[in-house]
């Protein structure tokens, strides 16, 4: 019965070829350092899942944002847990993505033929930092407000176009409801879409080129 279902599905979806292509392939023997990429992916999925749950109750409006988070923390069943995971997941994700980058660097894994994997990886690192920056404002508390005030002011020091960038970031001269709306939108739509797209390319390249091997000293 199972065999019939599988073969029925395989005729239509090509599952077996996907399986042999993705899972049943030979890869070089590697060490634990090579789990950092999948750990980053796992953290991204955790952030995505908890983020979707948080978006059920979170209201990106200056008069309601703080209270909506208070509600998530005290009123919603396990809301505190979801937010706690999202909060700590952000820090862990930055750490893991960064160490993943260092691993790739020190093992020379960015070299031929994996230049594009590296390129997408660096953009993913930057996008992760962007997620951290935009997400930090959303609780709309003192810490968030002043960190973002200073953070966006830094953009204003760019010669010539600094003021323009500042106003694009803030949606005006000061932090306001517009800033919150922009950061919220970038945090839950723009950056996640960019990250998802780049992860797809990143993973395609990893499967196509195979994971790098641990470099041997004598071979260079």
């Amino acid at each position: 019965m199972t065999a019939r279902v599988v073969s029925w599905l395989d005729e239509r979806l090509g599952l077996i070829s996907i399986y042999s292509l993705v899972f049943d392939r030979k890869v070089p023997k590697v060490n634990w350092w090579f789990t950092l990429g999948s750990a980053s992916l796992f953290l991204f999925i955790m952030q995505g899942v908890t983020g979707v749950f948080l978006s059920v109750y979170y209201v990106p409006d200056p008069s309601k944002a703080y209270d909506s988070i208070q509600y998530i923390m005290t009123g919603v069943t396990f809301g505190w847990l979801i937010r706690g995971i999202h909060h700590w997941g952000a820090s862990l994700m930055v750490i893991f993505v960064f160490i993943h980058m260092l691993r790739t660097f020190f093992m020379g894994a960015y070299k031929f033929p994996r230049e594009l994997t590296w390129l997408t990886g660096v953009i993913l690192l930057l996008a992760t930092l962007g997620m951290g920056f935009t997400g930090y404002l959303l609780p709309w508390n003192q810490r968030a407000y002043w960190a973002t005030t200073v953070g966006t002011a830094i953009a204003g020091t760019v010669p010539v176009i600094g003021d323009f960038i500042l106003r694009v970031l803030r949606g005006g001269n000061d932090l306001s409801a517009v800033t919150l709306a922009r950061f919220f939108s970038v945090h839950i739509w723009f950056l996640p879409v960019v990250i998802l797209g780049l992860i797809s390319v990143h993973m395609y390249l990893i499967i196509r080129l195979g994971i790098s091997s641990v470099p041997k000293e004598e071979e260079g």
Partner: peptide
Amino acid sequence: LLGLAIFVGVPAEPPVDPGDSTYIPRPEWY
């Protein structure tokens, strides 16, 4: 993650006070 969320939690912060310019801005640690 579970451990951090359960045993450390998220620190409480006062709501936004735009007039309070004496607040020391602290960016996220990274």
